[in-house]
């Protein structure tokens, strides 16, 4: 009797704490979800007079929402692909090699990972500016002047897709290389040796053996890279100024800073468009979280 009494008390305590924690975690979402569907939303949480999808319609019809979304997808998608490609090959090489540079390279990857991006933003700006000027000179040699602007938007380093993609890919490469290296460590080289014995060429080995084997690792490194790029604010804030290249986080930030009255319904709708892919990617990446960040101690 006494035992069951204490355990109900403990149960009640458990639920009490969990409910308080849940309210803390959920409360900020409520306003965003309500305001996005409220035709007349304000900064304060209130019951909407009329509910509609009007705000979402306006994000794409009146604002440049579609352009921001496409820009974000191009840049983050491109960076993620590069990260997967480079970390796949790089991780494989790092796992299989015994060269003298292996240990220093791995050490520097970890050291690079701990550098906070704001610490490098000023020199990066100088480097990107120099690269941009170099690219401009190069483009001028081959492209007529009237197409200059369009071409630079693609291959430029400031206000250009190429620069954003390469920079974001590099920033998230160290973690991905580390994931792939540890991943290949756990894959026995016997599979490849068997393929070599069977006389497979390198291309066949890559396609038939290595790629299928590497899939889970690549999925993890790709997802983490995508989440980090999608969340990144500093890079588009610093290296994008033209409205044609504006990405979602800056779109939200600029809508938030608008000097005249802020349109909160619109803002909430953009925020939901921006958050949805992040949540999907996070749900997919969740099962890799522990082995990526928690497995380090065994490593």
């Amino acid at each position: 009797m006494a035992l069951s009494k204490t355990s109900t008390k403990a149960e009640a305590g458990r639920y009490g704490v969990l409910i308080v924690l849940s309210i803390y975690c959920l409360m900020p979402f409520v306003w965003l979800l309500v305001a996005a569907f409220d035709t007349n939303a304000g900064l304060f949480l209130e019951t909407p007079d009329s509910v509609s999808l009007n705000n979402f319609y306006r994000v794409f019809a009146e604002e440049d929402g579609l352009r921001w979304l496409i820009n974000s997808l191009i840049v983050c998608g491109g960076a993620t692909l590069i990260v997967m490609l480079l970390s796949g090959f790089g991780g494989y090489a790092l796992s299989r090699t015994n060269a003298w540079w292996k240990r220093p390279f791995l050490y520097s990857i970890i050291l690079i990972r701990v550098i906070p991006p704001p610490a490098l933003i000023v020199p990066l700006y100088q480097v990107m500016l120099a690269l941009n000027n170099g690219m401009r000179w190069l483009v001028l040699q081959v492209v007529p002047r009237e197409h200059m602007r369009d071409v630079m938007q693609i291959v430029g380093f400031i206000d250009g897709y190429l620069g954003l993609i390469l920079l974001l890919a590099t920033m998230h490469l160290p973690l991905a290389l580390w994931i792939m290296k540890t991943y290949f460590d756990s894959v026995s080289p016997e599979y490849e040796e068997a393929a070599v014995m069977d006389g497979a060429t390198f291309g066949q080995r890559l396609r038939r053996v290595l790629l299928p084997l590497a899939m889970p690792g690549l999925a993890a490194s790709g997802l983490f890279a995508f989440i980090a790029c999608w969340d990144d604010f500093l890079v588009p804030l610093t290296f994008v100024s033209s409205p044609e290249l504006r990405m979602l986080p800056i779109g939200i930030f600029s809508a938030f800073l608008r000097a005249n009255e802020i349109d909160y319904g619109l803002l909430a709708a953009i925020a939901i468009v921006y958050t949805a892919p992040a949540i999907i990617a996070f749900v997919l990446a969740r099962r890799f979280l522990v082995q990526t960040f928690g497995g380090g101690l065994k490593g």
């Binding site: 975690c25 900020p28 949480l45 604010f233 921006y274 992040a278 949540i279």
Partner: peptide, 18 residues
């Protein structure tokens, strides 16, 4: 409890400003 983790920083700032 995991949900706030998935929210991008700018959106988190927006939610909390309300």
């Amino acid at each position: 409890i995991l949900m706030p983790n998935a929210v991008p920083g700018v959106v988190a700032a927006l939610m909390w400003s309300s």
